[in-house]
Design a protein around this nucleic acid. Structure first.
Length: 478
DNA sequence: TGAAATGTTGGGGCG
DNA sequence: ACGCCCCAACATTTC
């Protein structure tokens, strides 16, 4: 018996049905559509997502399968490298074509190339779409055709091109099914979820999936976006969109986000942030080497001081600086950290502890549910001062002042550091300065119930500036 | 998408 | 009344 022709749609970072270009194109062919997810990165693979991301992915795949089933379709799950697995599946299902939306990570692009040659040798069509960015990579250029190195002109160029944005498209009304579905692994077989249940906090905090993403976007467009400009830095408020993990997994597209918010008169600060994400992918495309190497080559001479003990203290939220520790514990507990806190904890690791930014980047990739290769790399290099359009290295955040500014009453700190809950706003960001009486009343014994600061701010600042000077000297020598 | 150091100004206390 | 000093408030420079 011959199987009638079909089309494969390979889902990766586009775990949605609406505004999903590859799926839409596949539906338009009129052929039966076979949605596929491939588990390509086993333990130890460098492209394996972090633990928090895997947890999200697991939930998101389950929900994608549910929404496909509502359209009398389903998600076919397989294991193995794309270049082998997809041609086999195509042969099995008599697929004429494989449709996918580009993933712009260097490893994913290599994977796509291998897949393309594997398919072509078998006469199967391969079609790439773009669904993960506002503008196709490389399409935002300076007037002379160069690539932007500074964010603000890049943003201006995006703004000028906004008429080019497509309108968000609805999910295909129907997906025709093959007469016979190919075999599929249960999603739980991929072992994306952790064995031990460190993830309870993450589960409680988030609902992955397209439906939840749409709800969040709707709520943000209605109530959040107008406040965003003035609230976004307040760690003690719900001033941000919290869309980042949904965007990362493509449960919502940036085009949908743009159109849901852009009409608002006060949308600019938020749209600007959306463009930072765009900028990051644009940069990674130009300079994939910056995943590991500083964009500014001078920083190859920076005298970092790797220190496992300090790194661990930072990761666990035990640096002795409450604002830093609150951020790191929020990350550990929920898989997410407020952006302002990200800036401060990153600056602290790099400038107060002089630990290489790559260590911090690796920790974020493992623990953030929104871990995004391009954003993460750009962000860390930006903070470390070695990136594109970066904060100059001598801009060193004072973790106490940042706390007092962006968590004035100390609510954020008290929420994530229970051992400091008894301290009032006066001392909450600098318990080492607190007189004995309030400390005792709060049940705090510094060095026992809560650590003393790992380093003194003023001293650390001077050491960081000295390290920068040393780098300049070394760079001059060559 | 800083913060510390340094400079300037102006009001008020005081001899 | 006047000049002097102190210092808070604000501005500018520097890292």
């Amino acid at each position: 018996m011959t199987v009638s022709p079909s089309v494969l749609v390979w889902f990766r970072r586009d775990l949605r049905l609406a505004d999903q270009p590859a799926l839409r194109a596949a539906a338009k062919t009129g052929l039966p559509v076979i949605p596929v997810y491939l588990h390509t990165s086993e333990d130890g693979s460098p492209s394996r997502p972090g633990a928090a991301s895997r947890l999200w992915l697991h939930q998101s795949l389950l929900r994608l399968d549910v929404s496909l089933q509502a359209k009398r379709s389903r998600l076919v799950v397989r294991r193995g490298p794309a270049a082998d697995t997809l041609p086999l599946l195509a042969a099995e299902t008599n697929a004429q074509a494989v449709f996918l939306n580009r993933v712009l990570e260097p490893a994913a692009l290599r994977e796509e190339q291998e897949l393309e040659s594997g398919l072509r040798s078998r006469g199967i069509r391969f079609e790439c779409f773009h669904g993960g960015l506002l503008f196709e990579p490389g399409s935002i250029r300076t007037t002379t055709g160069g690539s932007f190195q500074v964010f603000t002109p890049f943003w201006r160029a995006c703004w000028n091109e906004r008429a080019r944005l497509r309108l968000p498209e609805k999910a295909p009304a129907t997906l025709s099914s093959p007469e016979c579905w190919p075999q599929s692994l249960p999603i739980s077989d991929l072992r994306l979820e952790p064995e031990t249940d460190w993830a309870a906090g993450i589960r409680a905090e988030w609902t992955p999936g397209e439906e939840a993403a749409r709800d969040r976007l709707r709520a943000f467009a209605r109530h959040g976006v107008s406040q965003y400009g003035e609230q976004r830095d307040r760690t003690d408020r719900e001033g941000t969109s919290r869309l980042s993990p949904h965007l990362h997994f493509g449960e919502v597209s940036p085009v949908q986000v743009w159109h849901a918010t852009a009409a608002h008169p006060e949308a600019e600060p938020f749209l600007r942030q959306l463009a930072w994400r765009e900028f990051a992918w644009h940069l990674l495309g130009e300079r994939p080497d910056t995943l590991t190497q500083p964009f500014n080559p001078q920083f190859r001479h920076f005298p970092w001081h790797p220190n496992t003990k300090w790194l661990k203290a930072w990761q666990r939220g035990r640096t002795g600086y409450p604002f830093v520790d609150a951020g790191m514990r929020q990350l550990w507990a929920t898989g997410w950290m407020h952006n302002r806190a990200r800036l401060v904890v990153a600056s602290f690791l790099v400038k107060h502890l002089l630990i290489p930014w790559q260590e911090g980047a690796a920790w974020f990739l493992d623990t953030l549910v929104d871990a995004d290769l391009a954003n993460n790399t750009m962000g860390w290099q930006w903070v470390a001062g070695c990136g594109v359009d970066a904060a100059p290295y001598f801009r060193i955040f004072n973790p106490v002042l940042q706390g007092e500014k962006f968590d004035p009453a100390g609510e954020y700190v008290r929420r994530w550091i229970p051992e400091l809950r008894g301290l009032g706003p006066e001392w909450i960001h600098k318990p080492w300065n607190a007189p004995p009486l309030p400390l005792a009343a709060a049940g705090i014994r510094l060095g026992e119930t809560y650590p003393r600061p790992l380093v003194d701010h003023a001293t650390a600042r001077l050491l960081a500036l000295a390290a920068l000077e040393e780098m300049h000297r070394a760079a001059r020598r060559g």
